[in-house]
């Protein structure tokens, strides 16, 4: 009986991480589902949903993790694929960097019904004048207007654009 596991791997970035990890999995017929892989600072992070027949994944990846100095964490993904993953709102936030932007924006929007599906942030600008940029795709459980109203209460000096996503099917 096959099952899904969720792997998280993190380590100092270097060429070959993705190819070596995925080759180790492919060699024993572990199939990949959704994955997210990106550089964060000087680290490289990977999260992979893996479909397999009960393999000992930590043992399987021991060699490659040791070679590339990767930390590995395995979760059993009992619920499988999420079917309700269609975003209906796109939000961009940016402004002069300060602590607490993500916390303030997301808590306000969560109270107004936002379920975040995808969120990414980045630091940009210059060292003496850094700016913070955040993009969110999510579901507006109480409608997009509720988010727009809630956004007006956010005190931070941030620019915020809230745009409904009307998915085209054709």
């Amino acid at each position: 009986m096959k099952k899904w596991s969720l792997l998280t791997l993190v380590g100092a970035d270097q060429p070959g991480i993705v190819s070596k990890v995925t080759q180790a999995l492919a060699a024993v017929d572990c199939e990949l589902g959704e994955t997210s892989m990106m550089r964060m600072g000087c680290n490289f992070s990977m999260m992979l949903r893996v479909h397999h027949d009960g393999k000992d994944l930590p043992d399987l990846l021991k060699g490659v993790c040791s070679e590339l100095k990767l930390h590995l964490h395995v979760d059993e993904d009992v619920d499988g694929a999420c079917v309700d993953n269609e975003p209906d709102v796109n939000i961009t936030v940016y402004g002069a960097d300060r602590s607490g932007i993500v916390a303030e924006v997301t808590s306000t929007l969560a109270d107004a019904g936002l379920n975040i599906i995808d969120l990414e942030t980045a630091l940009a600008g210059t060292t003496d004048k850094p700016i913070y940029i955040m993009t969110i795709e999510g579901q507006a459980k109480n409608g997009v207007d509720a988010l727009t109203d809630a956004a007006k209460t956010i005190s931070a000096a941030v620019e915020m654009n809230i745009v409904p996503i009307q998915t085209l099917r054709a």
Binding site: N90, T92, D118, E120, T135, E137, V144, T148, A151, K152, I154, V158, E159, M160, N161, I162, V163, P164
Partner: peptide
């Protein structure tokens, strides 16, 4: 890419 974002027409601007 998910990260490609055009700053779209503004529905709300603080």
């Amino acid at each position: 890419s998910r990260r490609t974002d055009l700053f779209q027409r503004k529905i709300y601007k603080k």
